[in-house]
């Protein structure tokens, strides 16, 4: 393979990697505060993209995206308030079934309201054919938008968790929920916040990559599986791990296309998932948290 082609695959991999990374990080935010694996995470990405496309018919692009993120955050809060909040110490299995149920519900609602058609936002700058040449590789400006957004999300989350009072409360809640309550922290509200946050970043990522990857009512399930793979691979609970793992899975997939028919692309991440669960349940960078989930 020539170097140029390798780089081209790499860029493609990084683009998909962005969305996997963000979905993985979303899994982690909710897992850390609640111990719940939220399989509706992929639907937030779908909702973000689809809502933005609809809003863009009426308002300029930045407003449409902001609106879509806000709507999706509200959806996240609604999911938490209706399906999670009133449960006292639910089992892991029960939570998984509930979140899968929620994801099916959201998907069907999306099918009813938007139909089956595939949509996309316009390119933020330029169009499908415009490209920048970086070191001999042609890169769509949208790829740079995606990567920049991913960086922005990571920096924002880092700042939020390390340097704000609310972020500190969420870390405390993740470390020890009872002790957090004993400090007078309203832990239930933090659970809502974790759903709102991960819905928000999922929606934002869903908007930014949609010009390249397209979006449709049914993209959520695949993304949830990949995001889950990424979260486990990075070590459940570790956001930085998820970002690294997201790009790794994205790039692996992109290169697999050069070796196998494209139809097998999705099988890659499932194979990776199974391999980790068998060989290294705590993930590449992680500790015992993932192993706990497996036995729970």
């Amino acid at each position: 393979m020539q170097l140029e082609l390798v780089l081209q695959y790499l860029v493609a991999g990084l683009t998909y990697g962005t969305i996997y990374a963000v979905v993985g990080v979303g899994f982690n935010i909710i897992y850390n505060t609640t111990g719940i694996i939220n399989f509706a995470q992929g639907e937030f990405v779908m909702l973000g993209g689809m809502t933005a496309v609809t809003l863009h018919r009426f308002v300029p692009l930045p407003l449409a995206i902001a609106g879509a993120v806000a709507v999706t955050m509200a959806a996240g809060a609604l999911v938490e308030a209706t399906c999670i909040r009133w449960l006292e110490k639910p089992s892991v299995l029960r939570m998984i079934i509930i979140t899968i149920g929620v994801s099916i519900l959201i998907r069907e609602l999306a099918l009813v309201s938007w139909g089956e058609s595939v949509r996309a936002l316009p390119y933020f700058t330029g169009n499908e054919v415009s490209s920048l040449t970086l070191g001999g590789v042609h890169v769509s400006p949208q790829v740079l938008w995606s990567l920049a957004t991913c960086v922005l999300i990571v920096v924002f989350l880092w700042f939020f968790f390390q340097h704000t009072s609310l972020g500190r409360q969420m870390r405390a809640c993740a470390a020890n929920r009872d002790a957090a309550a004993l400090c007078g922290i309203a832990t239930k509200n933090l659970v809502t916040l974790s759903f709102v946050l991960s819905a928000g970043i999922g929606a934002l990522a869903g908007c930014v990559v949609s010009p390249i990857t397209y979006t449709a009512y049914n993209i959520g399930t695949g993304l949830a599986i990949k995001g889950f793979t990424v979260a486990i691979l990075g070590g459940l609970g570790s956001s930085m791990g998820a970002v690294g793992a997201g790009f790794l899975v994205g790039v692996l997939e992109a290169f697999s296309v050069s070796l196998m028919p494209a139809a097998y692309k999705d099988a890659i991440s499932v194979a990776v998932l199974l391999a980790i669960l068998f060989l290294r349940p705590s993930g590449l960078f992680g500790s015992g948290a993932a192993a706990r989930l497996k036995t729970a």
Binding site: R168, R171, A172, A175, N176, D178, A179, A180, L182
Partner: peptide, 12 residues
Amino acid sequence: LVPEGRQVFAPM
């Protein structure tokens, strides 16, 4: 309450 077994926020 100072709970049994301390329950400090270990990673902080």
